Simulated scan of single mutants.
Amino acid sequence: MPSPESVQQTGRDAPPRLEVQNLIRRFDAQAVVDDVSFRIPSGQVTCLLGPSGCGKSTTLRIIAGVDMQDSGQIYVDGRLVCDTVFRVPPERRAIGLMFQDFALFPHLSVAENVAFGLHGTRAEKRARVADLLERVHLEDHIDSYPHALSGGEQQRVALARALAPNPRILLMDEPFSGLDERLRDGIRDETLALLKEEGTAVLLVTHEPHEAMRMADQILLMRAGKIVQRGAPYNLYNAPVDRAAAAFFSDVNILRTRVRGALCDTPFGQFLMPGQPDDTEVEIVIRPQHLKIDFDRNGRGPNPTPQDGTAARACVERARFMGRESLIEYRMDFDGSVLKVTVPNVFLPNPGTPMWLTIRRDRCFVFPAKD
């Protein structure tokens, strides 16, 4: 186990900027953080993603030093900063914090907020403040006060203040949730660009999959205190570990079926289930965008009825335009189940309209059935 002394390594052998080992935190004998371990190298944005109450904010508070774990260790650049005996004070961990409510001082100007906690000469502090405000495009507001700024501008001041001391690690707890939805994507992109310029290791806590996908190099998906899956956004989206992981990132359709002779029947024909015992109940999970309307079989081509068993007949239950796409709900002739399909742009067939649907089998996920 590494000692509290700094590990002096560089290059490929350098330790991660932040390492969390086997972190456990209990409240009333219940583990709200349950054996959590991960690493974040310098310059990487890692996202703790999960529903409210899953333990992600508690993990963040322990790393920041404002809460104490029951077991486990935390290292910064290979140096132990906290276990259950040894503890570096929060202000000496070289860790910056950015909160949901920005926590700006209302009686201080923008420049004074950014400079708060900086060390060095007056000229050094002034230069650092001016540089950061220019990079967040707020140089014209250097003498303004927080109440005179928009929500997006306050968020950028909070970011500049968090980065001013050159922290090795920046912890961000739902930092964009207070912003108008129309502003969020632009502010996220600006924030990500600045963080990459600084080379800061970032741990971002959020419950929004879209935010995690947009910002993170690595996502740690949490549930009930545990990390249930980790990896790049693409991998979590396209190779979920279970049904709940798939459903966290988007709506999903569930086809429940049983295995018979290594095959199972679905509205879209038989699926091969090698290695599954007979009578095993499974769930085939598919996202709405991976169900397709077979227009050739709906009067626009030579085959108005299916010949290969891979298309399924359904009737429109409801159709809604969602802005960038249309969402159509279909009731399947096969078993009466309702499946959702998304179609780009405007497509609003009348309720009761019969149609044929096909499925992208390479985009289906198969999991053991859950009660």
Rank of each mutant, 00 (worst) to 15 (best):
I359S: 08
L132P: 10
N235M: 03
D308Q: 08
V338N: 01
D34P: 11
L163F: 13
F248P: 04
L194S: 11
E190M: 12
L118C: 09
R318T: 14
A162P: 02
P175M: 06
A311K: 03
G352C: 11
D294M: 10
T206E: 07
M273V: 11
S3L: 15
L195Y: 12
N113V: 08
L291K: 01
A123W: 11
V33N: 14
A29Y: 13
P41G: 02
G96T: 01
R93Y: 01
R324Y: 10
R17S: 13
R92D: 15
I24N: 15
P277G: 07
T58C: 09
V343T: 15
A232G: 11
R331G: 03
L149H: 02
R363N: 12
T310Y: 11
T191V: 14
G50Y: 09
F86I: 10
I95Y: 05
C264A: 14
P274W: 10
Q289Y: 11
A115R: 06
L49S: 05
I284H: 04
A148I: 07
V136Y: 05
T46D: 04
K196F: 11
R361F: 13
P267W: 15
L204Q: 04
R17G: 01
P274C: 05
S150C: 00
F271A: 07
L18Q: 10
F347H: 13
I63K: 12
V316I: 07
